[in-house]
Amino acid sequence: MTGYEGADLAIALINVVLLGLLFVVAIAIARMRSLFAIVMLSSIYSLISATWFVALDAVDVAFTEAAVGAGISTALLLGAMLLTSRTAKPEPRKFAIVPLLVCIATGLILVYATIDLPAFGDPDSPANTYVGTDYIERTPEEIGVPNIVTAVLASYRGFDTLGETGVVFSAALAVILLLGFGERSLSASIGRRKGGKE
């Protein structure tokens, strides 16, 4: 076995371990009823996905997944959970044959579809031949930024990123319109403090 094959084997092992962990966590989330544990487990799920993205050399995606999935959405879900109950309603356990068949059929179709996918990192795949190589060739002359992801995100696809920023902003706006500014607790605590002093 040469060193290259050894590295391939190690990467395959890492992928199997990470995907296996994802599978176990997903099953645990589906079977649990305590919302607090579910929020924590989905944070762990995001963290493992981020690790897997690093193994796939998608460092920027991994970074975003770790910051958003494991960081902020856990905090937001915890905040939302405090407004509701701590456990989900227990589902009556019954054997449902139709959903099981639908799941198995969809899974088989997806597995069948992966056979046609190009191999990971294939230089001849559609994703790596047309616009991708163009960006790699033109970024040093046109943008002069070492990180091509940043060049694509902020310059070539500046319109898309403007739209995404608008989406984030309008999401915050929608939550504020629905739930209020959240200043009630601020004024309540200040009022309580003043009341305590008097």
């Binding site: 905040g79 405090l82 915050a172 504020i176 209020g180 500014f181 200043e183």
Partner: peptide
């Protein structure tokens, strides 16, 4: 935006 969303949720429980 993220902080506004967090405050909107968290501000409802003292």
């Amino acid at each position: 935006s993220m902080l506004s969303i967090f405050y909107a949720f968290a501000g409802r429980v003292t």
